[in-house]
Design a protein around this nucleic acid. Sequence first.
DNA 1: ATAGGGTTAG
Length: 721
Amino acid sequence: MIQILTSKKRYLPHQKIIHLANLTNSYSPRLYSNNLETPRLKTFKHPSSYASILQSLRDLKPLQQLHSRIIVSGLANNIFLCNRLVNSYACCGALGVAECIFRRIPSKNVVSWTIMVSGFTRNGLYNEGVEVFREMIMNGFLPNEVTATSVLPVFAKLGLVQFGRLIHSFLIRLGFEINVFVGTSLVDMYMKCGLVSVAEQVFDAMPEKNVFSWNAMISGYSDNGLGEEGIVQFKRMQRNGIVADLVTMMSLTASCSRIEWRQLGRMIRSFIIRSGFDNCLLVKTALLEMYVKLKCIEDAYRVFNEEMPVKDVVTWTLMLSGFSDAGFGNKAMDIFDQMIKIDEISLDSVALLGMISSCSKSGAMQQGRRVHAFTIKVGFGDDIFVGSAIIDMYSNCGNLDSAKLYFEGLKERDVVCWNSMIAGLGMNGYSDDAVGLFFLMKRSGIEPNESTYISILCACTHAGMVNPGLLIFNQLIKERNIEPKLQHYSCIVDLLGRAGRLDEAYSIVNNMPLKPDAGVYGALLGACSIHRNIELGLKISQKLFELNPDDAGYYVLLSNMYAVSGDWEGVKKTRVSLRSKGLKKDPGISSIEIDGTIFTFMAGDKNHIQYPEICNFLMNLIAKIECEGYVPDLNSVFQDLTDDAERDVLYHHSEKLAIAFGLLRTKPGTTIRVMKNLRICNDCHNASKFISTSFERKLIIKDGNRFHIFQNGICSCKDYW
DNA sequence: ATAGGGTTAG
């Protein structure tokens, strides 16, 4: 309590009483009311006495009491007090009351309008804030410096760049742009709108700059992906003798995580220690985030575990998503379980979202179901952000029924919920339904966004629905409010390419208005590989090697293409150039969830505890399906080995290990769900068909972004090689 | 006035 009191700057004697009363209210109502009945407080006749008390009030109840006392004192029409009251109610979040008082002020001044604008904007009601601002202008009031600083950030939030520029020109005419506050707000607004060079112009023209202004620049650069510029600006700031504060530290670590510059990260860390910010929770959390983003998960965990005695919900959430990003789903779940046991940590939707998306990524359906139940228990059952994540989680686990059920039960749905459901239907093979839902969404008055088009085009691709896909793509091009992006072109090239219409796909690549990137060429190369068009494939891989020389995936595709056409010389050449560049093919990883724990397998991963047991089982399994007609496809092996060795590699692919483990550890008849990071190989695909018959199991294998559902020897995926 | 964790798509 002492700390809270001393942290406030100025205290008049009567303010102290009110403040103490607030703090003791919860456990000592008698003291509270006694203090309020102090005769000294009752006899105020001058507005200024109330005004100073109003400024320090942050809770609704004492505010209401003071308000009544103001009415009793006959000061309810004093504009000075009314403005203060509006402000105090807005600070307590009671915007209805605030607006009511505001509306009744007969002769509002600029301060009244400004307080109402910032009352809305500080509570996240941006549209209402802008509306009051507009009303103010219409009523002939000109904004002052404070109005400008309350309303400018809102233009950035709502993306009203043009409006912002208009107000900017107003401010110049009024001579306010030389004000540090106004200048900083303008810099921030332009940075948030992505107009970096305009922000730079404003900043350079500012006659006075303080640490806020510099911070706005540094964090702005970082947000716009220009971390290096941020570091340069920081050095300039130091040369100008401006002392860095905690916001500077946080913006610096953010810049660092974006440019993936580990060496600099270390320097910033020592700078933080030297500047005495090492014990600051916010700065420490920013440092943790830096390690998470730099994918230094051990460093991140060391900071989290050893150097942060005080943690809040953000710290925990960061560690959770750090583990999730690094592919440690079980560890993320451990963190979540620990976090929910701590009373002081109040769980919010962001923490829940992190955990749900972690389950989604690792395909942990049992964990996901548990977290889903938990979200309902803690009152986030109707949250649409959480809802979208849950739909995605169930879809990603191949449990479309649960996803649909959840989607249909939502009271409110935004565009992201619809997108999740459309994507879920698409990747699970219900492309017709996805298209149907897309049109239903438009009929329901929800405007599709960029992601909607990506989801729906992918859905069409999975089912080879070329014509509906083309139709929707043409709609997108005609639509005025969405600019087709490179990703959309990748989708349409993928759609045409996979369907075998390579010429049309190539023609789109050659005629598109944007410069094709690796994603677009990659889609085309994938199509060439499926349809064995080696001539075009060679041409495209040349482009890709120029664009993205370090991606081993393209070499693999090219090599596969040579292999299927029997060009062993080409296969060898590709492998040599891959090796000479020091590149390695991404390891294939498959995982399976058993009783709420995720088990991960890598090809030939002999370190696994149960490896001998699994291998033994797998050998018997292969012998069994060979009797039923399975023939190993040695073309699926990327290495140059003897037949026997190739066979050995093939039999220990990660997906086969995961399937074997699933068969060993689950009851007969249970569906086996396997997640794979890369595309399933032809041989594993074929073997899975045999396994589904031989063991009478349903196998659901997700590779990359699509499902393969094997049942009675048939796979749901029709266009597979 | 500037600042920390999250959802769909690839």
